[in-house]
Design a protein around this nucleic acid. Structure first.
Lengths: 212, 212, 212, 212
DNA sequence: AATGAATGAGCTTTCATTCAT
DNA sequence: CATGAATGAAAGCTCATTCAT
């Protein structure tokens, strides 16, 4: 009947909304600091200064907190996507600049949303799929606007792969003895441009000037 | 004094070595099936048909089992690297073929070592760094042999990024609504070749025929 | 001062009375379905479509709901008793028929009052004593009318025992591998008649024709 | 695979057996004092002076403790049955004396096993069925020896009903304003003899001298 | 060295009851 | 008087680790 991984009650009142936000903030902090498994629901409630009973009025279980957090990030990223990836906002800009602008915004988002990295980069979390699907869709839209001749299936594949490349390089750059944070940005741009160029060549499509 | 995440004593005796292997096999199976957190040390010992007390004579704690597993995989991958990435074994082959051979071998390795994917693809596991460092080094060696004019720092960066790209695409392809397993192999080749070409262009180095 | 297991205020208003009835109906349903302990006050209020706060304005605690339910059943049984056990209504009927009629009525009552069985058959619930006392009294009255020579103390004892016999056979018949529901009715009649006959013989009193 | 209401490990060692006994004793005491639901597993462990973890090594959950207690009582009653109900032990004795001896033994058993009453008298507990089935079987055996002409189906029915009668009268006698403990014993004998006589009459079987 | 019973802190989650609105 | 969000003590149970045998 009711999905045990969804929020119990969507908070209508301002006070309740504030509480849910507090809980999600605390959860984000703790997930970041000690990981999902080690973050206890009592600790989350404690950090959020919310009684444990109240936490369970909004969330039926721990997993639903993770899911709600992912949902919140997904929602909050929509504006970011509109600003940095939408065809209208990026029209005329060289691809490198678009990617750069997107990475810049993502870096800021990541800094402001402490568990985003965890959620975005952690392998196979059902909770993250929706978030990722949305990102892929935005990239797909961008590719569609940029390369109208690219077949939709190939485009979707390229969009998925592009997100995978970003993900992989972000993961790598977070680890010691690999890429520095500064390098990773440039490297992501290089890799994505190189990849997209290769796809276009494969598909025998014309290269735009900045990929030639 | 003694690192609590390292194996307690390297088992000299044959029987001990067998036991350690049994434990690691059981751990790999369980980690794969239920994840690291949900795999209990008692369950690992049970699966391995080894008394829990014995398990704790070889491993000081649960984390050390994960670490040892990563170490075992690292060791076992050395042969794979020699066969598929070493300059001598790959001399004269087109890069695409080298990468294809490597991915093929990795696929087989992954199938034979059930927790490899978990360890290699996990976003941030301190236990995996050594394994990854080794992979990066092999790629670095390969690039050094292929592109002797590439500056060592740039090369190391490219090697790290290449591994990141592979990782990212492997992660993505494991998730629904993205890349199929079949597509991911081709896409990894496309992405890597595209990336390396871009690096060479950036560095104003000559392109080999198969990247032109 | 005020008994915490009694209803807080007897609802004078019509709307209040309706609410109390709704609560008791919901409680009866839930007690029957999941048992007293597992039935939560919030679930009762929810089923009754009454705010939990209102529930606590009528009932100081969960136990008092059970008690009020028993009281309601006791009240509602009064009519049943008058119809099936009162000396006037049963005058001239053979005892077996009286018992049969009573059991029939009880069966219907039980079907219509879902938690009655739970309350009546529960081994030791302080809440049930009054209900049982009333039943015993009715049986006592019946015996008084039927057997005027039976000493009052012996009669009261026999009335208590008779109710115990009914109770015991009802409990047994609800359990697997014992008596079927059909058998239990006949068996109760057999047992009660046999018991009363034995009492009369013990007391050296004349047996009516149908017990001879 | 493994029944979650059965003991986890049957204690082989003497020390373990002692622990299990301590747990069951403590559980019996607590069940008696506060009831099954209100008796917490931690309280049981505390009373038994056994760490909670050890309790859960033997019992997978709270219900299994109740079940094991019922099983222990069932086992311990076997000797009582042999002494008081077996055809050989009761041969030649008048039925009233047999019942009296049985009730006497049951009274002593009840006094020595504090939760027996709760388990035997509580309505519909799956945990009690086996215990009750055994009692019914013993009564059936006794009836078979005493009244060989009684049809087996009728006999089994009578055995079930007899146990029901005992149960009902025990329940009633535990409640205020009904039967005193002393009276209940006599009343049970009266009721059982009266019932069995009625059954024999119904079946048109000869009455033994003490039932005539 | 080998064993596996023993340990108890700590986990997630529930629910009777209150009280500010 | 009516409401239902809020509360937090306490429940059942797990499991990494130890240590007496």
């Amino acid at each position: 009947m009711n999905d045990p991984t969804t929020m119990r009650r969507s908070p209508k009142q301002l006070r309740s909304q504030q509480r849910v936000d507090d809980i999600l903030d605390a959860a984000a902090r703790l997930f970041r600091e000690v990981g999902y498994e080690a973050a206890t629901t009592n600790a989350i409630a404690g950090q959020a200064q919310v009684p444990i009973g109240s936490l369970y009025q909004f969330f039926p279980n721990k997993e639903s907190i993770l899911k709600a957090l992912a949902q919140r990030y997904t929602d909050q990223m929509r504006d970011l996507h509109a600003r940095t990836l939408s065809p209208t906002a990026t029209e005329g800009l060289p691809l490198a600049q678009v990617i750069g602008g997107y990475l810049q915004a993502m870096g800021e988002f990541e800094a402001a949303h402490v568990a985003f990295r965890l959620l975005f980069l952690s392998a196979e979390q059902t909770q993250t799929h929706e978030m990722q699907a949305e990102i892929i869709q935005r990239v797909d839209d961008l590719l569609a606007a940029r390369f109208p001749l690219l077949r939709p299936e190939r485009r979707r594949q390229a969009a998925s792969a592009s997100v995978g490349i970003v993900k992989g390089l972000m993961i790598i750059s977070g680890e010691p003895a690999t890429l520095s944070a500064e390098q990773s940005g440039d490297e992501i741009i290089t890799a994505l441009l190189g990849y997209i160029r290769a796809v276009l060549v494969q598909e025998a499509l014309p290269l735009p000037p900045d990929l030639a």
